[in-house]
Each structure stands twice: as C-alpha cells, then as structure tokens.
Design a protein around this nucleic acid. Structure first.
Length: 466
RNA sequence: UCCUCGGUAGCUCAAUGGUAGAGCAUCCGGCUGUUAACCGGAGGGCUGCAGGUUCGAGUCCUGCCCGGGGAGCCA
C-alpha cells in the first residue's frame, strides 16, 4: 500500500487504498453504527488534516484507538471514501491503525486543542509547529525562501555565501556579537592592559555579521548580479515586534545599476514573491486571512497589482508637514522618517507600498552614493502598510575620492576598509543593492503581528531558549 | 534603553484589604456520522521572586525577574 502525504491523499480518487502517517490533532467518538471514532491526522504537508474513520470492529479499537489523544503519532492503512459528514469531502476509512508514539501523559501535553496565546506558544517552541498557525508559517517561510532563489536564478543572479563571522568592526551597523575563544575570566592582555586579541582564535577581533553587503559587493564587481541570503545578527537591545537579534536577510547587489534600477528591482522582487505565495500556498493564506489578519489576501493582491509610489525624501517630508497630523515627532527635513511617519505614508496617504528616495546624507551610511546636490545620498526605503520599512537600499559610492572624503568625515579608518576601497581602485563601477528582512516579509505576507512568531526559534534580548 | 500595562489552576481570565473562582483542557460517565461537539461529575493553587505595612495581603508599599503594547535603533 502506497504511503501518501496528507496533501496527496486528500486529492486522490475515492476508492484509493493508501497508508497515511502523521500526528493526531483530534479524536471524536460516536456510538452510532456500532461505534466509531473520527481522528484528524495531520502530517504538515498541507494545512488540512485528513479525517480517519475508525470503526469499533478494528483490531485494538477498545484498548488503543479510543485512547488516542492530541499529539499521538500513528500510521493508518485504509481506503478513501466520500465523507458522509459535512466538514470535509473525503474520509480515510481505516483497515489498520498502528500507534507509533503515545503521548505519555495527555494532561501535560501543552498543545491542547484550543486557542493558545502566542506568548505561551513561544515558551513551547519545540511543539508549536504542531499548531495550525505555526505549521502555516513554516510552509510560508519555505515557500518564500524557494521563491527568493527562483526569482534571482531566473534573472541571472548568483547566490553568494558571505561569511557569518566577520574579521573586523568595519561594518558599523550597530552593536555586534563578539566571537571569541578567549577565557572570559582571564583574557590575555597587552602592555596597555587591554585584551590582546592577537591571541584569540582568529588572531584578531571577530564578530557575527550584521550585513553581508560589503562582502557581496566584491562578487558583484565580478559576477555582475549577485545576492546573499543568510543569518544576520544585531546585538541591539531592541524590544519590539519587528526586531530580532538573529534574523535572515536577503541582499542583492547589481553592477552597472543606479538607484532607480535598484528600486525597480525591489518592486519586481517583492511582487514576484507575493505572487508565488498566492499561487502556491493558498491553503495557508486562507487561514491567515480568516484567523490572523482579515483581508491579508486582498492586501497582497493590491500590492501586486498597483505600481509602487515613488517619492523623494524631500517630498515625503512636505506631505507629512501638510498632513495636519499631530505627530509625536514633527517631520523636518534632515531628520529621519519616524515609524509613525512611515505608517502614515504607507497606510493613510498612499495606501500602498511607497519607495522613499534620496535621503539627507547626514542620516545615512558612509557607503551610500552622494548626489550632485551635495545634501542627499542615493538611498531608498520601501515602506509597506503595517510593517513600515521592509527594504532599505542604496546606490553605492563608487568614486574612491568621494568615498574617502566621506569616511574621513565620519572618522572611519581607511586601513580597515582596504579591500572595500580596492573595489573602487580596480575597475570601479556604479552599483546598487538593498536588504530585505526575511522575517518582516513573512510578517507582511501572513499578518502575524510579532516577528518572534514567524521564525522557528526566536533570538531576542533575554530570549535564547531552545 | 525609555514610557506604559500586566504576571492568580495546564491554558485564557475573574476575585471592595476579610474562606481563591469560572470557562476551556485533562480524567470518569452519558449522548451523538462526529468535526470549536453537547450534558453530568472529578482531580488540579507556595496568586512571578524577595522584603515591608496590617489583626489580616492575590489586592497596599519598595526592589528585582519575566512578558505584552508603544518609542528609539533598524531589516
């Protein structure tokens, strides 16, 4: 008898004999027809479970089947029939049920068939994938991951594995996690009394990466179109529903590309991902739409169909000033666009994703390309409803003299960036790229409010269990 | 890190400073081609931790720990 996934079983023809293997979601008993039990079995292959009908005449019915509880693992041999009940099209009428793994004390099984809070399930991260919500999130993550690679592959991008451990502090994007094998209790020190990292594993200070961008730029200036997709670490003490200490980031980098081309790519990319989700994971999307965020499917369709709005930063500030809204932080040219501003632009003013371009240079990173006005840099943020900033990108400064001046202004040590500067010395080329926070994308697609619930094992301040 | 709200049964939550409760879950029984099932019963508590005020603290005060929401930082 063929072993079928539940997703295959549900669409097999009536009369098909099969074996299904999975975990019991619910069991309901009836005394009708001489006694029978209905067992919802889920194997994660799709959102739906299959309803197994177990008659009292089955071997082991009284001492095994009626003792099945949520979480037990079983194998079922049976025949697919048209369901006599209302909730499903087909049933699997069992000829044999083998109990593979019992739940040894059902009273202690945390995933009861009831509503659980996200906060509680976060403390049961090893068992929460057995719930509807986290099963759906897991399949959505997979679907999006595959879509990322497929999109780039079809457009001639190469996937570059940039390092997780970085050999310098020259990334500058906030607090980093140190990587060291030194004895914390008595680290070696130099003559100046400071820790002597030359005796550390790598012979220098090392940290976990905060961005693959600088590294991927090297391959960009050889392979033209590249991207990274890997774990990223920020040691900031951020306590929000949008931040993690460990998250996954997608960073494409394109040679011979300016900011407008960068924004074009970001828009096409986002739309292609959403389109893939709607065409391949409608079962999970329907669940999100019903139970997590009403209207999320329409929201995604809306994003796919309409062109993104593009506004200059300067124009965005004017819009915010003219809005008449009493913002907590008054919008002002030269200041960053606050979260409340982002949400006003994306949710109320434009009611769609908006790309804000050309920010004041003072509030942006050193590697962003200076514009001719002397005041702004070629940076862009893609703002979406609910999430705010989902993509941040820029055209990179490819002119060595301009880059050097900028680094001097910011007090950065040129020696630390010697290989980055080399890219500008040897065949420099205009190029641009962006970073997309993968978990924010999953949030945007699912409507899940807290970023800690769209990654299997969230790492955040005071949170690294599992 | 700042502001704010919270922490009571396995879960979700009640409880004027005066005997700690309900629903769900679990277990037992009943009923039913069931499906958020329904009806009846049972078990289940160091009220986050440590102090303090009081005849008496889940409730008031102080400190700490943890969580939610908002902000900053950002993706």
């Amino acid at each position: 008898m063929a072993w079928l996934k539940v997703s295959e079983a549900l669409s097999a023809g009536v009369g098909t004999e099969m074996t299904v293997k999975g975990w019991v979601r619910t069991r309901r008993d009836s005394k009708a027809d001489g006694g029978l039990s209905f067992i919802a079995v889920n194997d994660g292959s799709c959102f739906d479970s299959i309803q197994v009908v177990a008659r009292a005449s089955l071997p082991g019915y009284a001492d095994q089947i009626v003792r099945l509880t949520s979480g037990c693992s079983i194998e079922v041999d049976g025949t697919l029939v048209t369901s006599q009940g209302k909730g499903q099209a087909v049933d699997l009428v069992a000829s044999t049920i083998r109990v593979v793994g019992w739940v040894d004390d059902p009273d202690t099984y945390p995933i009861a068939q009831k509503k659980h809070s996200f906060e509680f399930l976060r403390e049961q991260a090893h068992l929460r994938p057995r719930t509807n919500t986290f099963g759906a999130v897991a399949r959505l993550r997979h679907c999006l991951s595959v879509a990322v690679h497929r999109f780039f592959d079809e457009k001639g991008f190469y996937y570059v594995h940039t390092p997780i451990i970085t050999g310098s502090d020259c990334e500058g994007a906030g607090q980093m996690f140190r990587v060291s094998t030194l004895d914390l209790m008595k680290p070696p020190t130099g003559p100046d009394g400071r820790v002597d990292f030359s005796q550390d594993f790598f012979g220098r200070e090392t940290n976990l990466t905060v961005s693959g961008q600088l590294n991927v730029e090297t391959y960009c200036t050889a392979l033209s179109r590249v991207y990274t997709f890997g774990p990223t670490f920020r040691a900031e003490n951020s306590n929000t529903p949008r931040h993690l200490a460990e998250f996954w980031m997608i960073e494409p980098e394109v040679a011979f590309c300016d900011l407008a081309g960068d924004a074009d790519l970001a828009e096409e990319f986002l739309k292609a991902l959403l389109d893939t989700v709607l065409s391949r994971r409608m079962d999970d999307m329907k669940f999100f739409d019903e139970r997590i965020e009403k209207g999320v499917i329409d929201r995604l369709r809306h994003v796919i169909e309409k062109p993104f709005r593009r506004v200059e930063y300067t124009e965005a500030i004017e819009i915010l000033k003219r809005s008449g809204r009493a913002f907590e932080f008054a919008p002002e040219w030269g200041s960053d666009i606050q979260t409340e501003h982002e949400r006003y632009l994306a949710e109320e003013h434009f009611k769609q994703p908006v790309v804000v371009m050309n920010y004041p240079r003072e509030i942006k990173a050193f590697y962003m390309r200076s514009n001719d006005d002397g005041k702004t840099v070629a940076a862009m943020d893609v703002l979406v409803p609910r999430i705010g900033e989902i993509i941040g990108g820029s055209q990179r400064e490819e002119r060595l003299d301009v880059l050097d001046r900028r680094m001097e202004e910011l007090g950065l040590n040129k020696e630390d960036y010697w290989w980055y500067r080399d890219l500008r010395r040897y065949g420099t080329v205009p190029h641009a790229g962006f970073g997309l926070g993968f978990e924010r994308l999953v949030q945007f697609c699912s409507g899940v409010a807290n970023i800690r619930d769209v990654i299997p094992f969230p790492r955040a301040p005071k949170q690294a269990a599992f």
